[in-house]
Design a binder for these strands. Sequence first.
DNA 1: CCGAACGTGTAGGAATACTACATATCCGAC
DNA 2: GTCGGATATGTAGTATTCCTACACGTTCGG
Lengths: 298, 298
Amino acid sequence: MTLPSHPGQVDTLLAAVAARMAELRPSEQKVAALVLDDPIGALDHNMAGLADAAGVSEPTVMRFCSAIGFDGFRSFKIALAQAVAVGLPIAHSGLDRDDSPAQLGEKIFNHSIASLDRARRRLDPAALDRAVDLLADASSLVFVGFGASGIIAQDAQQKFPLFGVPCDAPADFHQQFIAVSMSTPRTVTVAISHTGHTAETVRIAAAAREAGGRVVTITGDDGPLSSYADVDIRLSTFEDTDMFTPTVSRLAGLVVVDVLATAVALRSSEAHLRRVRAMKDALARMRDVEQPPGEGLA
Amino acid sequence: MTLPSHPGQVDTLLAAVAARMAELRPSEQKVAALVLDDPIGALDHNMAGLADAAGVSEPTVMRFCSAIGFDGFRSFKIALAQAVAVGLPIAHSGLDRDDSPAQLGEKIFNHSIASLDRARRRLDPAALDRAVDLLADASSLVFVGFGASGIIAQDAQQKFPLFGVPCDAPADFHQQFIAVSMSTPRTVTVAISHTGHTAETVRIAAAAREAGGRVVTITGDDGPLSSYADVDIRLSTFEDTDMFTPTVSRLAGLVVVDVLATAVALRSSEAHLRRVRAMKDALARMRDVEQPPGEGLA
DNA sequence: CCGAACGTGTAGGAATACTACATATCCGAC
DNA sequence: GTCGGATATGTAGTATTCCTACACGTTCGG
C-alpha cells in the first residue's frame, strides 16, 4: 500500500488531531478546534487567514502543524485536503433528524468512502497473499455469513466463474454445516463475521476445521472466529456509533471478495479466462432488452 | 453536495487533464504527461521540482495549471492531492497479470473508492428527495434486481425494520412478478439494474406500473427501465473496462439503499425507532458467542 | 526572406511560509 | 507575597515559493 502517509497520522487526519487535542497548548487548541469544526472551510485559508480565524498568530498555527506531526503548514494542508476528499466520517458530522435526504446522502456516502479508505490503509497485504494462495489451490469453496455478512457470501458465490472451482454459499445454517462438514483438505471455507463473535459462524468455521478443511476468515474485530482461521483478513472499518449509522463493514467485505476473486482469476489459465470472457459477453447479450442488431421489446 | 469543486474539473482531476491534453502546448503536455504518469510522485514536488522533472521552466508549469482551469499552482496541488486520496481508478492503472494480491488490493480498493466518489458527485439530490417521499408514504415495498443488482435488493430487504413497512425482495422472477402484480397505489417497487436494460427487471417494473403501483428505479445508464420510473435514481460509476474489473456499481447501489433506508427511518415515529433500537440490542446479545455477563461457549 | 504570432524561458517582484528572538503569563518555592 | 524559572505566545525579520512582466527564440504565411 503506497498511499502518502504522514507521521502522526493515526488514521484520518482529523482523528489524529482530535487524539492529540489534550497535549496541545491552549492557543494551538483553538486552531485544532477550528479545523475539526470546519475542515473544508479551513482549506480555503492560508496560514495568515487560519491564524486570524482562530484568533492566534501565525507561528502558533505553525507550531500546531508540528505538534500533530507535520513538518510544516504546506504538508498539513495537503493532508487536510486529502482527509476531506475521502469524506468526513459520520463520527465527525452526526446524522440529524432534520437533515434532508440530500444531506443524508452526502453524509452516508462520505462515511462509506471514509470507511473503505480506512479499510484500505489497514489491510494486511500478507494476509491477502496467503488467502489467495489458499483459494487458488482449492478444489471447492464455501462462503458463510449471516445478516450483512451473508450478503457478502452471496456476492462471492456470484463470482464463482472467477474462482474457477465449485463455489457455494448456503444461507441456511444446517446446509452450511453440511457443506463444511464434507470438507476435504483442499476445501476452503470463507467465514465472514463483522463482529468476529457470531455464534453460528464460529461453529461453522470450527466444523470446517474439524473436517480437515482450510478456513479463511473475514472479520472486523478480534473474536473467537479468528482462532479457527488459517488466514484471518482483518477489516478495520468504523464502529456503528449510533443505530442509524448504516453497516458500512459489508462494503469493505465486498471489495475484499472482489480482490480475492480477481487475484485468483488472474492466476488461472488463459483457456479458462477465455471461457469466462465468452460467458460474460453472452450474458450481456442475453440480459439486455435492446439487442445490438434487432429491436428491443420494451 | 458541498465538496470542493474546481473549474474544469470534469470528474476527477486526472480525467480533466487527460481530456485537455490535446489543446495544451507541447511543453505543457510534458507536465501533463508527468502528472498523469505518476500523480503521487508529482505531489512530492514543488513548482520548481515539477518544472525540473518535466524538463521545462516554472512559468510553463504555471501556464499548465491555468490551462486546465486552476488559478494557480497551489490550488492545482490541493486538487491533485484530493484526486490521489480518493484513489486512482483502474482506468489509470490497469490490472496486471503479475500484480501481487497486495497490489491488486490497492488498485481495486482505489477503484471502488473512486467509483463511490464519482457516484457521490453525480448523485441527483432532487431524485433522492422524491424517492424518500415515495418510500416514506408506502404501505409495502418490493425490491427487485438480478445478479449484482439482486444483491442490492437482498440487502435492502435486510433493512426492512428501518423502512417500517413490509419489505420483500424475491429472488425468483415469477415471484417478483406475483409480488408487483399485487401492487396497490401505495406499493412502491424499487427496480435495480446497473445497465438499465435488463429485460426481466424492465418487465417487473412495467407490471408494477400496470397494477397501479409506484416505481423507483436505480440505474447506471439510460435504458428502457427508467421510462417506467416515477423516480429514477441515476448512479454514475465507472464502465467495466475489462473483464477483471469488478462490478463496482453495486457498492454505490448499496450505499443508496442505506441512504433511502436511513432517510425513511429518520421520518418515522419515536416509538418505532425505540422498537428498532431494542431489536438491534437484542440481536447483538443473541448473535454473539461471548455474552457480556457469563462465559462464552467458544 | 520578412514579419507576425505563438511558444518558451529569464529575471525580478509579491505573497506566503518559516524562524529567531523577545515579552508576557503562569506556577511553584521560598 | 514576591521572586525565579519555565512555558506559552506574539513580533519582526528571513527565506522560500509562487506568480508575472518581459524578452528571446521559432515557426509559419505571405
